[in-house]
Simulated assay, not measured.
Amino acid sequence: MNPSIVAKTKQLTKTWQFAAGFLLVTHLAGIIGLAWSFTRPYFQWATPINLLVSVILLLLFHRHWNRAFIFFLAFTFILGVGIEIIGVHSEVVFGTYQYGDTLGFKVLGVPLVIGINWFILSYCTGIICSSLSFGPLIKSLFATVMMVALDFFIEPVAISFDFWHWEDEAVPLRNYLGWLAVAWVIQLFFVYLPFSKKNPVANYLFIAQVVFFLILSSIV
């Protein structure tokens, strides 16, 4: 193999490993910062910034950008924000809930970073399940279940740190059914659109989020 190619490969490996490590460290720091009442307001303020940094690093390591991937990125963001706007105002999709101030700038009552969060979760779970030895429909179902399972641990954290609030602070079954429906639509687009399903950072970002919400949900 050409020595220059080997050198570039090693450099790329070091780069994505650094990015993955950075994401793990920032999420662990977030756990500590949110767990302590003294530092909590600062880390709540930084939550949207963390999501923005996470998606930037994720996109930097996506391989082979094409029109299909750009469409998926835009579609997931717009659908995520749009369905949340419908959900907040109609109370039909997920139940009765309102967003707090932690997640930052809102449009029609919904923080724009929610669209980023829908993309991150959909993309990461899709990447993880793309390596499974099943057909596209089964892969999309596995990824959908992973998203809903993570939401189960997100909910108590979201309520405690003013991400969003449910009526009587009780998460309805409708929320998880709504997640199943919306997530599966997104995952069907993921598996059938012709773009690269490889990203070395995606697995680590999803692991970081699982650890983040699993630990915080056990202590809030």
Rank of each mutant, 00 (worst) to 15 (best):
S4N: 11
A7D: 11
Q11H: 14
T13G: 13
A19V: 13
F22V: 07
L24F: 15
V25T: 10
H27V: 06
L28P: 06
A29G: 11
A35N: 11
A35V: 05
W36H: 14
F38V: 15
Y42G: 01
Q44P: 04
W45Q: 08
N50Q: 11
V53S: 00
F61C: 03
H64S: 13
W65M: 09
I70G: 00
L73E: 01
I78T: 11
G80L: 12
G82H: 13
E84R: 10
I85R: 04
S90Y: 04
V93F: 06
T96L: 07
T96S: 15
Y99N: 04
D101Y: 05
D101C: 06
T102W: 00
F105A: 11
I114G: 06
I116F: 09
N117Y: 08
I120R: 03
I120E: 00
S122C: 10
C124P: 00
I128C: 04
C129W: 04
L132G: 08
L132S: 14
G135K: 13
P136G: 10
I138H: 09
A143Y: 05
F152K: 01
F152N: 01
V157W: 06
F163R: 00
F163A: 00
W164T: 02
E169F: 14
P172M: 09
L177H: 04
V182A: 13
F189E: 02
V191Y: 10
Y192R: 14
S196P: 04
L205A: 01
I215R: 05
S217G: 15
S217N: 12
